[in-house]
Design a protein around this nucleic acid. Structure first.
Lengths: 199, 199
DNA sequence: GGGTAAAGTTAACACTGCTTACATGGAGGG
DNA sequence: CCCTCCATGTAAGCAGTGTTAACTTTACCC
C-alpha cells in the first residue's frame, strides 16, 4: 500500500491523513477558528508537536483541509447528470449550493481568505482549478449544443462562479432559510437564464 | 455639539469614535485578525482596558466597525446617478465593487461571518438593511419604468446581491487583476442583462 | 467650591496558541 | 542481532488576547 508519497505504516499508521480528517471535523463542529494544531493533534490522538513531522506550520494543515474540500466539491460536481448540457449546469449549481449548505464552515475556510497566498500550496491550487475546469467543460458543451448563447465561455464561467458564490455566501450566512434554498436558487437561475432586459 | 447620544468632551474627546476609526485602520492594514482590542486602544492612544467603557466586549467593537462599513457602502450607492433606473443599477454595482476593491479586508469583515449573530447588534442590522433598501428602490423603479422585466422585485434583488457578492469575492481574493475589474464586471452584467438562453 | 460619577490607568489573571529543543521508541536494513 | 533513522513524546518558551478589579483623574452639577 505505497500509494501515498512516502508514508508507510509507522507508529500511527497515517498521521497526516488523520490530521486532515481531524481538521475537517473541527472546522465542521467549531468553525474555522476551532481548527487549531493542538486540537487536531488531540483528536488524532497524538501530542501537540507531532503534526510538525507532517506539516511545516499551521497554514499548511489549513491548506490540506481546504484542498480536501475542493476535491470533494469537484467530485460532487463531476457527478452531475442531465439530458442537456444546460440541465447539467443547473445540477452543478445545485450540488455547489448543497455543498455550501452541508459544510458552511468548510466553505468559509475555502473561500474566506484564511490562507492568504494559495500559490504557496500547489496541491490546493490544483484541486481548486480542477473544480473550475468542470464548470468550464459543461459551459463549453452548452454553448456548442446551442443551449446557451454567449460571446465567450469565460464570461459565462465568471457569471456562473459569481452567482453561485453569491448564493452560497447568503446560505452560509444563514440569510436564506434552509427550506427556501431551492426556491431562491430557482429564482436567481431563472433571472440569469432569461436575462433582465425585456425581450 | 451634543449630536452624539451622551458623549461630550471628556478626557479623550470621543474615544468611541476614535476606537472605531482605529479598528477600521487596523482591518485595512493588517486584515481582520489584526483588529484586536489592545491594538485599537493603542492606536487611539489609550490603555488596553479603556475600550470597555464604550464596548461591552470585542464583538461589539467589531460590529461597530462593520456598521460603519455598511453606512459608507450605502452612502456611496445612494449617490449613484444615471439617466434611467437600469443605468443607476449598473452604477450601484460599480460602486459596490469599487468599495470591495478599495477596502477588501473591511469587506471580508462585513461579509465573512466574523460576527455570528448580527441580530445582537441592532445598529449593524439597520445599516445593513439600509444598503439593501437602496438596491430595492432602484430595482422597483427599473421595473416600473419598463427597463427590466421581472416577475418579482425580490428575485431581482436576490440576483443582484448574488452577482455583486460573487464578483466582490473574486476581487477581494485577488483572483481578478485590478485593471480587469471593469471589463469583468461588464461581462457579467452583460450576461445577466441579456440572459443565457438564446432568444 | 465640593461631591459624584463617568472615563481612563495600572496591574494582573487565565487562557490559548504556535513553535522548538531534546529525549525516546520502534521498525527496517545490513 | 544490532544499528540507524524516522516518527512520536515531553517539556518548555514565548507571545498574545480578552477580560476584570481596584485605583485615579477630571468634567460637570448643585
Amino acid at each position: 500500500m505505497s500509494t501515498s508519497p512516502r508514508k508507510t505504516a509507522y507508529h500511527h499508521g497515517d498521521l497526516r491523513r488523520a490530521l486532515v480528517d481531524a481538521g475537517r471535523e473541527l472546522v465542521r463542529d467549531q468553525g474555522v477558528a476551532g481548527l487549531t494544531l493542538r486540537a487536531a493533534a488531540a483528536r488524532a490522538g497524538v501530542s501537540a508537536a507531532a503534526p510538525y513531522r507532517h506539516f511545516p506550520d499551521k497554514e499548511s494543515l489549513l491548506a490540506a483541509v481546504m484542498a480536501e474540500g475542493f476535491r470533494e466539491l469537484a467530485a460532487t460536481m463531476s457527478e452531475a447528470e442531465g439530458a442537456r448540457p444546460l440541465d447539467r449546469m443547473h445540477v452543478i449549481g445545485q450540488r455547489y449550493l448543497a455543498f455550501a449548505d452541508a459544510e458552511p464552515a468548510l466553505y468559509r475556510l475555502m473561500f474566506g481568505g484564511t490562507v492568504p497566498d494559495r500559490a504557496a500550496h500547489p496541491v490546493l491550487e490544483a484541486a481548486e482549478s480542477e473544480a473550475y475546469a468542470i464548470m468550464r467543460t459543461v459551459i463549453a458543451e452548452a454553448i456548442r449544443a446551442g443551449d446557451v448563447h454567449a460571446d465567450s465561455i469565460d464570461a459565462v464561467l465568471l457569471t456562473m462562479r459569481c452567482v453561485m458564490q453569491g448564493l452560497a455566501a447568503l446560505i452560509v450566512d444563514g440569510q436564506i432559510p434552509r427550506e427556501r434554498i431551492p426556491s431562491a436558487a430557482r429564482a436567481v437561475m431563472g433571472v440569469v437564464d432569461q436575462g433582465l432586459l425585456p425581450r
